[in-house]
């Protein structure tokens, strides 16, 4: 498989008073198309920061991320937004749905920044919710949905754009066992259809089961040894 995404000497440092936090420290990583990559690590190890850097949501202190050989550093802010809008899907532990909108509107929101017309947005959102067996919950607000349903809506929102890659940050972190399994199955299903997935989790067992490759993050550094799936 061809290399699609690559992190080269990637660093992200934060200043906390006089102290510098090395959240991501000289990470080198490559991802092939259709790969399901797991990144495990304890809380505060820097795995979410790495995910945000790879998604173009955060700007590295040093190093670069290359997509199809093109470095992020050469993209303007607008181009990076376009990249996120067109090619990246993101799923968060806390779902990050907007409480004022219905499930349908939350899903349709992902197409807002790609210039789709409102009617098309809503039609496509309804279709994907139907496919994810949430058709009857389309008009419900997030507060009226269960955690699992909220995460499925969040995944629908990420997938409606038909992205090249899905970044999932602890997607099952707030879910019970049954819902976790359901979400896991969904991710595997999407990956089996050619979608590249990068999932960060503290759950080694889950990542072991789902991912083609798992890397361990410790104090901002990716450990060279791979954890066997």
């Amino acid at each position: 498989m061809a290399e699609w995404l690559r992190a080269a000497e990637l660093c992200r440092f934060y200043r906390r008073g006089s102290h510098v936090v090395r959240a991501v420290d000289t990470v080198n990583l490559s991802l092939e198309q259709g790969e399901f990559l797991g990144i495990v690590g304890s809380s505060g190890s820097g795995k979410s920061t790495l995910l945000n850097l790879l998604a173009g949501l955060d700007t590295p202190s040093a190093g670069d991320v290359l997509v199809d050989g093109s470095p992020f550093s050469e993209l303007s802010r607008r181009e990076r937004s376009q990249f996120r809008s067109a090619r990246v899907g993101m799923v968060f532990q806390s779902f990050n749905l907007l409480p004022q909108y219905s499930a349908l509107e939350n899903v349709a929101l992902a197409l807002l920044f790609s210039g789709e017309r409102r009617r098309t947005r809503l039609r496509r959102a309804a279709e994907i919710l139907e496919r994810m067996e949430l058709g009857d919950r389309a008009d419900h607000r997030p507060a009226d949905l269960s955690g699992g349903e909220q995460q499925r809506v969040a995944i629908a929102r990420a997938m409606i754009k038909e992205p090249d890659i899905l970044f999932a940050d602890e997607p099952t972190g707030n879910l019970d066992e049954g819902n976790s399994a359901l979400i896991a199955d969904m991710l595997v299903d999407f990956n089996s259809k050619g979608l590249s997935v990068v999932m960060v989790s503290h759950d080694r067992e889950l990542t072991g089961k789902l991912c083609n490759r798992v890397l361990r993050m410790d104090y901002g550094r990716l450990q060279p040894e791979e954890v066997a799936p």
Binding site: A55, R78, S81, L112
Partner: peptide, 16 residues
């Protein structure tokens, strides 16, 4: 702020 963050994660740019 959270709404702005979500919008940006979905591809909104600063002008939006």
């Amino acid at each position: 702020r959270r709404e702005i963050g979500i919008f940006k994660s979905l591809g909104a740019n600063e002008n939006d």
